[in-house]
Write a protein that binds this DNA or RNA. Structure first.
Lengths: 225, 225, 225, 225
DNA sequence: CAATAATCGAGACGGTACGTCACGTCTTCTT
DNA sequence: AAGAAGACGTGACGTACCGTCTCGATTATTG
């Protein structure tokens, strides 16, 4: 998905031996990716042109094509490279708070200029499997790993059922956000996030027997019916 | 959004009075819309060309442009016109069953050839607000109206809390489906739908016993089993 | 060789019936050909670009390619269309004078700006048989027809042998001009033309028995040796 | 015109002192020139690329550019280096036979694969004066020196007029060949050569009897038979 | 029934961006 | 210092669609 690595392109001789020939220009690479993000944020995916990227990056069109086979690949790589910080999960002692806080950060990004890039990626991904794969690998997966940890803490604390399907739970939490983000039928507000957490997490709590939060009870499935 | 009506185009003389001149060819209209859907399903939105539509529909390019101002409008209109049947909500006496059955129909569509069209629409909608609006109005809203009714029946039966936020609830049910549909990180199986319903709807069910945060304010029947 | 005719392109229905569709723009056609000649005269064949022609003619690049398949075809057609006037053969009563005068006109053209175009055509013709064919058909042949007439008058007058090989004779007269024009090893002066005529035509005269010019004697081959 | 000499390039220190550093690779030089000729013969001048030459010669592109400033220079040099043997003038005791035999050799070359190279050179020469100059110096001139000698023998033998303009005569003999070679309007056959010689040389032979316009001014032997 | 008017198909038009190719220059390591 | 390798910015290539524009032909209403 990303651009062909120098090593790939040259037959991977490895062992520290540099391949002959002029080395790839790091400056060009960075400039291209930066320009891509910039133009993507300005005009969306369909108005993004390779020609425009090359010009804005002060780079030959061939240089763009030398390393990225398509607009989609370029966009995916540019997006992947711009690893979004500030999307970590806090550890407040409450799953709901942890999740809620991270999800608030997410909708903040979705509503910012970067959101335009994300939606462009997702749109492009609908006709290019590499793009959507890049989104999954570079954006979704890393965060989901952290989310697993957060959920596990919740399980340990007894806030969530031990047998909870974590993927289902996470999709239930994030799905509504993505849906509103893409279909824009309702607003992405912090309150929405809070209520969403409350609704979904309560469905995953070890109820129905009331329990004081924060007192972990391990290894005991409880069922009423 | 849809094509300009004949009336609009002619200055809206209305009252049954037909404008002079050759009337619009219904055959061309239908052929264009059908070709649009066909080509959209074959190659996705980005490979759909007005030129291709015109040729496939055996129609002059100008005829397409005469009635639809842009590719997006054409696509939106074609999609809207193809109102999907078989997405009604049953009334089985159980919210969870009602919802689950309808959602199973939905994922069936999403996984079929028509799914390609839906994803193309959603993708196109990310850079054209008219397209996404058309999706909302023609596809989402009608079904949501039915969903409200289904939920209301559930409330009446005591399966759902009286104060439930129906939009939040519906987004929590459908959001995960859209997310998996678009990001393709996990499978859209009937089991997934069932578990999703169970998780979310249990979070919306009246608590059997008052919880720490937020006890039920209204007189609602409680169910244990 | 020339651009595809409208008729060809549309299946040649002939009989006055016009094909449907917007008719070809005569203005564009003329502008393109004119621009081609202009740019060709300025910078030679290798510096002539289709892009440049299109721009200079205020025309879309596709319009150029729609009618001329290659730069060579375009150049050939532009050249052919610019039928050079002032290359007629006079009738002075003397072959040598007739030929000499016409050949002087030719070298005048060769030494002018138009000469650049001719040499560009001949150069392009070395790697494109259509171009050289165009040169032959449009430029060489018409003049050669006139030349035949001139020579025949000379034969009738007894200035040339009756059995003279006219093609050989004409190549002997014009070949040296083309050679000097292309190889530029010696000058193309009027004197050169005169001496050339004298040399070659004397070789074609019905000598060796001296004869007063202007008294035709038909049907009698004379041989000394 | 030819490639820059090593001496030039290094500031001409002369006196046998070799410049420091790696000496020029003779192998590369030869390989480049050979590749040039080969590719030139295959596809003509316009399809010949520096890139192709470098690749075919297994040589770095920069190595080509280091020694030849342009494609034209390379071609001219390659052609010059390939001095065509077997174009000598015989001495049979008859000008016409001498010339005819050499000219037959020439058209044989023109009709062979080497002819393609010659026409490519002449074509390239139309937009690059260095190329045509190379052709003159390396190809035309050497042969013309020999031709002068042949003609002088003919004058001495009384086959040609003493005051004959040798350059005019030679252009009259070779011009038609070049013309047919480049314009391809008629065939280059041995018979053509013979007739050409007969026609032109008879025009240059001493007149047996003084003619009306211009009687011989110098004491020239006269031949009747 | 003729005149008027808007439609239709066809297809050429001036453009823009595509993705490729060769240009001539450069930067690296190797010989 | 020359060599090969190969990336670089540049610019033309020929193609595909864009959205607009004439055309002749067709099909309705209006006078």
């Amino acid at each position: 998905m990303r651009q062909k690595s120098s090593a790939q392109r040259r037959g991977e001789r490895g062992r520290g031996k540099r391949a002959p020939g002029r080395p790839r220009s790091e400056q060009a690479r960075v400039s291209i990716l930066r320009s891509t993000l910039k133009l993507l944020g300005e005009n969306g995916f369909s108005d993004l042109t390779m020609e425009g990227v090359a010009e804005h990056a002060d780079v030959g069109k061939a240089t763009v094509y030398r390393w990225w086979p398509s607009k989609a690949a370029l966009v995916a790589d540019a997006f992947a490279g711009s690893t979004t910080r500030k999307l970590h999960f806090p550890d407040t002692g409450s799953v709901r708070t942890d999740m809620s806080q991270q999800m608030r950060q997410l909708i903040k990004i979705f509503r910012s200029r970067r959101g335009r890039i994300v939606s462009a990626i997702l749109a492009a991904g609908q006709s290019d499997r590499d793009v959507i794969a890049a989104f999954r690998e570079r954006f979704l997966k890393p965060r989901r790993q952290e989310a697993y940890a957060t959920l596990r803490r919740g399980i340990a604390r007894g806030e969530l059922r031990e047998d909870v399907d974590m993927d289902l739970l996470l999709d239930s939490l994030y799905g509504p956000i993505y849906m509103r983000f893409l279909i824009r039928h309702d607003k992405l507000s912090p309150d929405f996030v809070d209520n969403l957490c409350k609704l979904v997490l309560s469905g995953a709590s070890p109820s129905p027997i009331p329990r004081a939060p924060g007192r972990p009870r391990h290894g005991i499935k409880r069922r009423t019916g």
